[in-house]
Design a protein around this nucleic acid. Structure first.
Lengths: 188, 188
DNA sequence: GACAAAATATACCGATCGGTATATTATATA
DNA sequence: TATATAATATACCGATCGGTATATTTTGTC
């Protein structure tokens, strides 16, 4: 009944499967069963449709990651909580996570990348904040927060990438393994 | 003078900056200063242009990574050699690496992803082979080669991603740090 | 220089692109 | 019930999409 939500749902499916550029507005409205003016009534442009989609889905991820990233002296615990939040979100919003990942690595001058960048930057700042705080307790981390944040997010996304390709399941054990490997390497 | 090479060069620039879908063949030929039949004389289609580009650039990366991935009992040494090969390639062929990264994470049913998948799979098999061989010497690695290969490539690409965004330089010291962190974690 | 083949250009194809002017229908409020 | 507004549809816009039929030029070979 709510055509606005159905347009967003449909755009999410199509964008995540074939990409923002490859999907036309015509295809979106036909899949929903409405016409173009309906889409342009709710969203001013195709870009506006994408940004509304990012707001609806992306803010939920940010909220959960933000809540998970409170550092209170136990870095392993905080990182495990963060990984759990990412895994839970990727499982609950598989299509969106696939789309977000694709947009994050899309070319720098593409519309998709420009639209996702604010969300990516926020995730990144959250992660860097954790390592900056942790450096107060673990001095040898100091000055490496950029690399660590990128590396940790890279590890998380590599794992979720395997999940998206049906090569593993995101278990609670995997949360532990992921953080343990990041903290202590593959030999221990 | 070689219009075929110039078309590939130009396609590489445009695809890496704005993406395969967002760049039309018209734009490519105009940037080179030829006309469409010239492009279609060398490449049967836009997709053929992309695949020729991947063959020209991607095979070089595969050759170098393959040579770097010979395991002879010293896992740290092999991983460092591999990271060095990736870093060298990313520095030497920045545009192509950016494009490859974007295509790897592009939607599964997009042309870009389907075209890059053979190359991505080969890189992945090379990495898995290293960890499978290393498991003969380090039994505790056994059965985790998929996760480790994905995690290691994820770490490499996260680092190169920072380089592509001008947030660090790919030094020899960073090679050591990347492998050391992967092997022993961030605390040591 | 004759001639075949490769390389390039002109001019066009139908289809689709994102977007809109205008009209109509449904809905809520007074 | 009158009226304004939100929601939707019909029909269209110019531009660009990937691709091609045909003709011309260049090039290498004998």
């Amino acid at each position: 009944m709510d055509n606005r939500q159905r347009l967003l749902d449909c755009a999410l499916d199509l964008f995540s499967q074939r990409g923002y550029d490859a999907v036309g507005v015509r295809e979106v409205v036909e899949a929903v069963g409405v016409t173009k003016p309906t889409l342009y009534h709710y969203f001013d442009s195709k870009r506006g449709l994408l940004e509304a989609l990012l707001r609806r889905e992306g803010s939920r991820l940010l909220t959960e990651v933000l809540r998970a990233s409170i550092y209170q002296g136990d870095l392993v615990f905080t990182l495990e909580t963060i990984v759990r939040a990412y895994f839970a979100y990727a499982q609950h919003a598989t299509s969106y996570y696939r789309m977000q990942l694709g947009m994050y690595f899309s070319p720098p001058e593409s519309e998709a990348n420009q639209a996702i960048r604010p969300f990516a930057n926020q995730q990144r700042e959250i992660m860097e904040g954790v390592f900056i705080q942790a450096a107060d307790d673990h001095g040898n981390l100091r000055g490496r927060h950029v690399r660590y944040a990128a590396g940790f997010l890279g590890t998380i996304n590599a794992t979720i990438g395997l999940y998206l390709n049906d090569e593993l399941t995101l278990t609670d054990e995997l949360v532990y393994q992921t953080v343990h490997q990041f903290m202590h390497g593959i030999f221990s």
